[in-house]
Amino acid sequence: MMAAAIVNLLRVRYTTLLSGITYALNSFSYIYYSKSRSSSFTIATGPILGIGAGILWSAQGMMMMAYPLERQEGRFISIFWIIFNLGSVVGGTALFAINYKHGKAK
C-alpha cells in the first residue's frame, strides 16, 4: 500500500528511475563483494532493493492500466506477462544449453 502512495506522490517517471537505481545498486554490491569479500554492503542493499522493487512494480502496474483503452487492458496485461515470462524461458534455456554442453565434454 505504501508503494502505491509513493508512486502517486512522486509520479511514475521519478519512481521508476529511483527504483531502477536500487537494482543497479544491488548489482554493484555483488561486484564489490567479489573484489573485497565484505558482505555488509550486499546485505544492506537487500532491503533497499526490496523497497525499490515494490515501488517499481506499483509504478509498472499503474502504467499498464493507465495507457491502454478500457477494451485493450486485457491485451496489454497478457503482453506484459508474455514478455515477463519469456525472460525466464530464455534464461533457463541458456543455462540448460551451457550445462548440457559441459556435461557432454566430460
Rank of each mutant, 00 (worst) to 15 (best):
L10S: 04
G103Q: 14
M65C: 08
V89N: 04
G103I: 11
N26R: 06
F96K: 06
S36R: 07
T42P: 00
W81Q: 03
T15R: 02
V12M: 03
K104M: 14
N99K: 15
I43H: 02
T15C: 12
I77D: 04
Y67V: 15
T16C: 07
T15V: 08
N99M: 15
A66L: 12
S58T: 04
F76N: 07
F76A: 12
L9F: 11
I43P: 00
G91E: 11
I31Q: 00
G52C: 07
T42F: 03
W57M: 13
G87V: 12
A59M: 04
M62P: 00
I83S: 08
R11H: 13
L56Y: 13
I55T: 04
G91K: 10
P68E: 12
A24S: 05
M64R: 11
I31M: 05
A5W: 10
W81E: 02
Y33F: 14
Y14L: 11
V7H: 05
W57L: 13
Y100I: 02
T93Y: 14
A53P: 00
F96I: 11
H102C: 05
A3F: 06
R71F: 11
R11W: 09
F80I: 03
A4F: 07
I48F: 08
K101T: 07
E73G: 10
A66D: 15
R11M: 07
F28K: 00
F96W: 15
N8V: 01
R75K: 13
K101Q: 12
V90R: 02
I83R: 08
A66V: 05
G92Q: 09
I6C: 04
G103S: 14
I31Y: 11
L10D: 03
A5H: 08
Y100L: 11
G87S: 08
R71M: 10
L9K: 14
P47M: 07
A105P: 00
F84Y: 14
Y100H: 15
S40H: 08
Y67W: 14
N99D: 14
L86G: 02
I31P: 00
M65I: 12
I79V: 10
G20N: 10
A94P: 01
V89I: 15
S19R: 04
P47T: 06
I31D: 00
F80P: 02
A44E: 03
S39Q: 08
Y30V: 01
